[in-house]
Design a protein around this nucleic acid. Structure first.
Length: 611
DNA sequence: AGCAGATGTCATATT
DNA sequence: CCAATATGACATCTG
C-alpha cells in the first residue's frame, strides 16, 4: 500500500535535506539559519521526541477513549452524522509519535483495516495513489516553533481532514469533485498542469470558496461533534485510522480533504507548537496528502473516490504548507488525466512542475530544489519565480483563511449556508471582511497571486478558477452575456452551487472590472476634457488681456488727442479784451441742446464751496 | 528601496 | 425595492 514506511533513518535524512532546502525558501520569512542548523535541529528533534513520547503517554488514554468511540461510529450518508456501528475494532497501529525524527511523525499509525469498508477504502487509495513517499516534514520545526505539549490548542479544523464528512456538504462535494459533473468538466479542460494549478490556487484563493469550505467543515465537525474535540492532532494521530473506516461509506460523495487547505492555513494561525504536533501526528493516510490529497479534495473521482488520506501532513511550519497548497492546484490537472498518475509520486511531481509540495517527497522535498528540478524540466526562471510567488501567496491566503475559520466560521457555520442557493449565498467577502477586521482583505491574498497571474498572460485568475471548477463557459461569456441570456444559460446547465457561485462572482467581478475601467476611462476623459477646457480658457484669457491692453492703449491715445484738441480750442478763444482764456480758469460745458458754454472754473469751484 | 501609475476589488452611491 | 452601474478607496503589481 501506500505505506509510507521509510526507514526512520532514511526519513530523517530526507527530512534533514528537505529542511535544509526549505530553509532557503523560508529565509524570506525571517527564519534564521540557526533554526535549520543540523545539530540544532537534531537536538530539537530529540527534545521534541521526548515531549511527544510523554505527551503520547498522557494522551494515550484519551486516544483510547476516542478510538473506542470513533470505532463505534459510522458516518450516516444521509444525515452526515456519525452513527454507532459494529465495525470491528482495528488493531492499534504503532504510534508514530515515537518516530525518531520529530517531524517525521507524519508517518502514522497504519490503519490496517478494521472494517471491510476501510480496507476497500485503503485499497482504492492505494490504487489511486500508489504513492509515494511518506510525507515527511520538511524539517524539524525551528527551535522557536518547538511543539508545545499543550493539547488544548489543537484546532478542530484539523480534524476535519480526517473526518471527510465534508462529502456531506453539497458545496464541498461539488467543489471537491467538480469533475464528477459531466457538464462541469469540459473536455477541453485539460490545461497544462501549470494552468490547472494556478486555477486551483486562484480558486482556493477565493475568499468565498474558502469560506464555504470553512463553513462546511465546521458544520460537519459540529454535526459530528468532532470539532468539539480539542484534542491536538497528535493525540488523534494514532487514531486517525479509526476515522478512516468510515470513509468507504462516504467514498462516493466524500472528499475528506477540503479541510486541508484550511488546515494548511493554520500554519500561520496555529502556534508553531501545534503545527508541529499536527505534522507529527498526521496519520499515514497523509502519505498522499500533497498533491494527491488535494486532488482528492477537489476532484473526487467517482471510481476512486477513496478518501484521500486526510493526511494533513502538516508539514512543518516552514514552507511546506505552501508547497502542499501548490500541489493542490496541480492535482486538478490530473483530473484530466484518465488515470491518476499518482501512482508514482515522483512521477507526479515531475509532471507537475509546481508540485513541489513538500509531500511530493524527495524531489519535491524542497521547494527550491524542486524548482530547480522543475526548471530543468523546461520551466523558465520566470515560471519558477511564479511558483515561489504562488507559494508565498498561498501562505498568505491560507493565513487569511485561517483567520476566517477561526473568527468567521462561527457566523457562517450556521450550516444552512451550505444549502443556500448560489444566489442566496452571502458574499462572504464583504461580510467576512466586516466580521473580521483583519480579514478585511480577503482578496489581498489574491493579490499576491496576481504576481503570478501577471506572469502568466495566458489565463486570468477568474479563468483559472473557472477552469478549476470545470465551468463550461468562457469567462467572457459569463461576464458579457446579457442578463436574460445569462440566466437562461445558467438554467440550461446543471451547475452545482459552487460553480454557480463562482460564475456569479466572476460575472460580478467582471462587470465591476469593466465598470471600473469605464469609470477610469471616463475620469481620464473628463480630466483631459477639463484640461482642454482649461487650456482654451487660458488662451481666451490671454486674448482678452491683449484686447484690453489694446483698448487701453487706444483709449489713452484718444484721451491725449482730446486733451490736445481741448487745449487748441482754448487757445483760439478770446475774451472781450482779446485775451485768451486759460484752461485752468475755464472749462467747456455742453448743454443738452448741444450748445457749448465756457464756464469759469473758479466760479464753478465757488459754487461747489457754496453748496 | 522607493515611487508613480495601472489594475483589481470591495463597499457604497447612484441610476 | 431591486438590479445594474458608477465611483471612491484601498491594496497590490509593475516598470
Amino acid at each position: 500500500m501506500m505505506e509510507v514506511e521509510l526507514s526512520s533513518a532514511h526519513r530523517s535524512q530526507q527530512d534533514m535535506n528537505l529542511i535544509d532546502i526549505l530553509w532557503r525558501q523560508d529565509i524570506d520569512l525571517g527564519a534564521e539559519r540557526e533554526v535549520f542548523d543540523l545539530s540544532l535541529r537534531q537536538k530539537e528533534d530529540e527534545l521534541r521526541r521526548q515531549r511527544e513520547l510523554e505527551e503520547g503517554k498522557r494522551l494515550h488514554l484519551l486516544r483510547e477513549q476516542d478510538k473506542a468511540l470513533l470505532e463505534q461510529l459510522e458516518l450516516d450518508k444521509e444525515t452526515g452524522e456519525f452513527m454507532p456501528c459494529l465495525l470491528p475494532s482495528e488493531p492499534e497501529l504503532p504510534n508514530t509519535d515515537t518516530a525518531p525524527e520529530g517531524y517525521q511523525n507524519t508517518i502514522f499509525s497504519r490503519v490496517d483495516g478494521d472494517a471491510l469498508s476501510f480496507d476497500e477504502c485503503m485499497q482504492l487509495l492505494a490504487e489511486t495513489f500508489p504513492l509515494v513517499e511518506t510525507i515527511e516534514l520538511p524539517h524539524p520545526p525551528p527551535a522557536h516553533i518547538m511543539p508545545s505539549p499543550s493539547i488544548g490548542n489543537s484546532r478542530p479544523d484539523m480534524l476535519t481532514s480526517q473526518q471527510s464528512p465534508v462529502a456531506q456538504n453539497p458545496m464541498l462535494s461539488a467543489l471537491l469533485a467538480p469533475h464528477k459533473a459531466p457538464t462541469a468538466v469540459p473536455a477541453s479542460l485539460d490545461p497544462a498542469p501549470a494552468d490547472v494549478e494556478q486555477g486551483w490556487m486562484e480558486l482556493l484563493s477565493l475568499h468565498e470558496l474558502q469560506q464555504y469550505l470553512k463553513m462546511q467543515v465546521s458544520d460537519i465537525l459540529d454535526q459530528n461533534g468532532y470539532t468539539s474535540t480539542s484534542m491536538p492532532l497528535e493525540v488523534q494521530d494514532p487514531n486517525y485510522s479509526f476515522y478512516l473506516p468510515e470513509l468507504p461509506d462516504l467514498v462516493t460523495n466524500i472528499e475528506i480533504t477540503p479541510p486541508v487547505p484550511l488546515i494548511n492555513n493554520f500554519k500561520g494561525m496555529v502556534p508553531p507548537d501545534n503545527l508541529n504536533q499536527m505534522t507529527l501526528k498526521a496519520p499515514e493516510l497523509n502519505t498522499t496528502y500533497t498533491t494527491d490529497s488535494l486532488c482528492k479534495l477537489f476532484y473526487t473521482d467517482p471510481s476512486n473516490t477513496k478518501p484521500s488520506s486526510p493526511m494533513l501532513s502538516y508539514n512543518s511550519n516552514e514552507g511546506y504548507p505552501q508547497e502542499e497548497v501548490r500541489h493542490k492546484p496541480l492535482e486538478p490537472s490530473e483530473i484530466n488525466l484518465p488515470q491518476f498518475s499518482l501512482t508514482d509520486g515522483h512521477k507526479t511531481a515531475t509532471e507537475f512542475p509546481d508540485s513541489d509540495s513538500g509531500l511530493s517527497m524527495d524531489n519535491v522535498s524542497s521547494p527550491k530544489k524542486s524548482h530547480q528540478d522543475d526548471s530543468s524540466m523546461g520551466y523558465s526562471d520566470s515560471d519558477l519565480e511564479e511558483m515561489d510567488s504562488n507559494r508565498s501567496e498561498y501562505r498568505e491566503m491560507f493565513l487569511l483563511s485561517l483567520h476566517g475559520e477561526e473568527q468567521q466560521s462561527s457566523p457562517y457555520n450556521t450550516g444552512t449556508v451550505s444549502h443556500l442557493p448560489a444566489d442566496s449565498l452571502p458574499y462572504p467577502k464583504s461580510e467576512l471582511v466586516e466580521g473580521n477586521g483583519h480579514n478585511q482583505r480577503p482578496f489581498t491574498k489574491d493579490k499576491p497571486r496576481r504576481r503570478s497571474a501577471g506572469c502568466q498572460s495566458r489565463l486570468s485568475r477568474d479563468e483559472q478558477r473557472a477552469k478549476a471548477l470545470g465551468i463550461p463557459f468562457a469567462v467572457e461569456l459569463i461576464i458579457n452575456l446579457p442578463v436574460d441570456d445569462f440566466n437562461e444559460l445558467m438554467s440550461k446547465h446543471q451547475l452545482n452551487e459552487v460553480q454557480l457561485f463562482l460564475i456569479r462572482d466572476i460575472r460580478r467581478r467582471g462587470k465591476n472590472k469593466a465598470a471600473a475601467q469605464n469609470c477610469r476611462k471616463r475620469k481620464m476623459e473628463s480630466i483631459s476634457g477639463l484640461e482642454g477646457e482649461l487650456e482654451a480658457l487660458c488662451k481666451k484669457k490671454a486674448h482678452l488681456l491683449r484686447e484690453s491692453a489694446q483698448r487701453n492703449g487706444s483709449l489713452k491715445e484718444l484721451k491725449e488727442q482730446l486733451g490736445s484738441l481741448y487745449l487748441e480750442v482754448f487757445s483760439r478763444l478770446r475774451d472781450e479784451e482779446g485775451k485768451p482764456y486759460s484752461p485752468s480758469d475755464y472749462s467747456f460745458q455742453q448743454t443738452s441742446d448741444g450748445s457749448m458754454f465756457l464756464v469759469p472754473r473758479v466760479k464753478k469751484t465757488l459754487k461747489g464751496e457754496d453748496k
